[in-house]
Design a protein around this nucleic acid. Sequence first.
DNA 1: TTGTAGGCGTTATCAG
DNA 2: CTGATAACGCCTACAA
Lengths: 343, 343
Amino acid sequence: MRRKITLKDIARELDVSISTVSKALKNSEEIGRDTKEKVQAFAKLYNYKPNNIAVSLKNKHTKNIGVVIPDIVHHFFTTVFRGIEKYANSRGYNVIICVSDESFDKEVINMEMLANGSIDGFIMALSGETQLKNDYAHLKEVTNQGIPLVLFDRVTDEVNCDKVVLNDEEIAYEVVMKLINSGRKRIALFTTENFFNVSKNREDGYRKALMDSGIVVDEELILRLPFNENIDAIDPFFDKHTIDAVLAVNEIFAVHAMGVAQKKGMKIPDDISFIGFTNGMLSKYASPQLSSVAQHGDKMGEIAAKMLIERIEAEYKEDEEEEVVYRTEIIKGTLIERASTIN
Amino acid sequence: MRRKITLKDIARELDVSISTVSKALKNSEEIGRDTKEKVQAFAKLYNYKPNNIAVSLKNKHTKNIGVVIPDIVHHFFTTVFRGIEKYANSRGYNVIICVSDESFDKEVINMEMLANGSIDGFIMALSGETQLKNDYAHLKEVTNQGIPLVLFDRVTDEVNCDKVVLNDEEIAYEVVMKLINSGRKRIALFTTENFFNVSKNREDGYRKALMDSGIVVDEELILRLPFNENIDAIDPFFDKHTIDAVLAVNEIFAVHAMGVAQKKGMKIPDDISFIGFTNGMLSKYASPQLSSVAQHGDKMGEIAAKMLIERIEAEYKEDEEEEVVYRTEIIKGTLIERASTIN
DNA sequence: TTGTAGGCGTTATCAG
DNA sequence: CTGATAACGCCTACAA
């Protein structure tokens, strides 16, 4: 078992000083041709690689990014994550991931662990509980310490930092308009509780589209499901209400609802149309295939990572207190039309 | 912007030495009551937390685990990851994740980056390309350096390390037997190329079940799809062959095949049965719902993390070269029966 | 009871 | 051209 070799080892073996080795490996001009070659050859032979930890301690940065998300078994988040990872890697950063599991406490603990030097910056989507409690002290703490933070998707106005979000309200508006223009009149909204900024925004778009079309919003047609995937309430909903379209804030609600509607004998999309958010596997493989709003998670992730890394690297040469201006990037959602809506 | 406070800062402010502060914070017996209280109060006030990097450098371990998987937007892998993350967190470890994207080179690069001190051990599933090339030098390199490694799902006999796998062959055997016992005679297998150990094992189970039942294996009924989700070949397959059951090595193949069969006018499960591997979202929300083999990813992840951490922590007190024995844990798959098979 | 010194592996400054 | 020294932040054996 051959342990990793260090500068010191090389120095000892070659009978030169540590600093000579260090410089030689960096191809420094100060070092003589022969010494350089000798050192470099030896280093290659023994596969020397600098120890990341030592370098981090010295440089005060780790080249690690912390990502904190509510859930990992979730198409949208993994998509964003893939975008983050890809961009971060291309810039030489690694990604440490922590799952908050929709829990406030876990979110806090995870962030504290990472904030003690393990990472150079955070990218995160707020947990459900955090949005419910509306308590962002841990985020403010982190930014106060000068650790850059980028929020995506599940964001809040309470914290001053860079953000990346979908144009939730707009796209919901557009999509509902499309339903209305195709002749739909009784359009239900299947959503979650409103402490989620995204659900709130989508609902706003939904209401606005109805109102702008002269349709009175029937509060009965707005079904609020809990966020723990308990979708039993969908079934009875169809017994109680006559509807000809559904907008759902995620795939699961939409696909499950399609199943229920079909069981009740309704024809899709002749009798009823369905549109969901999150253009994932389910939308693609459901039958009929579900029309849904692509949230472009890859792009969101990439942009979030880019914003963060810029922030991180700007810090190194910062003139101290030059009034930082935070940006919010807005990604445009795209409706992918499939068989669950009339073309 | 209040930067993080260090032992040195506290020492200076309180006019004591750094080591006194260090000991006081550890509640050492050596330190006087008053000093301890003074230091601890100050530390709490300024929210002192030891710097992870410095501690890592000192202790020669990072409390980080490296996870390398082929894909993150993938139900099974995320499930395993969730198991890893959960267990690791409960033991005070963080998880750094790298995606190999089924690429050999990325796998190698990622591992090298992490192996330079960033992590205490690896958990990984081999990339497709790695299994194809059958080149495991990078894994051997890592274990040679004394970094513990646990392989899961996509494993190889070429590397000596702990492993966690599904009983792929057995469960495939059982499941095909079930199809046969329900009267199926022409059972197709939709799989990937055979350099994947899992596909290979599942195929072996499939063949064995047929043979044990006196059915001659018709090689024509084994459809090998490329691993890049290109499933166009499924459609023509149904035109060419008459079959009454399908075993697919993943959900996507199975659900897509169900769609094709239905389009050709076949009734599920009356005319044809379907069973897939990976009991994910698709299985649950397809119509009809797909019977599928639960791979218990959470459990695999948890066990993998447990094995790894035991290995890591055993190292600290190792008597050097006492003939390490590696284990392979086998997780039993479970068939979740749904509407795509006859009960 | 407190402090000093050395070291973890690397880098940068400065002296030789 | 090369090397000694200090520093990053923390820990600990040993000295005072």
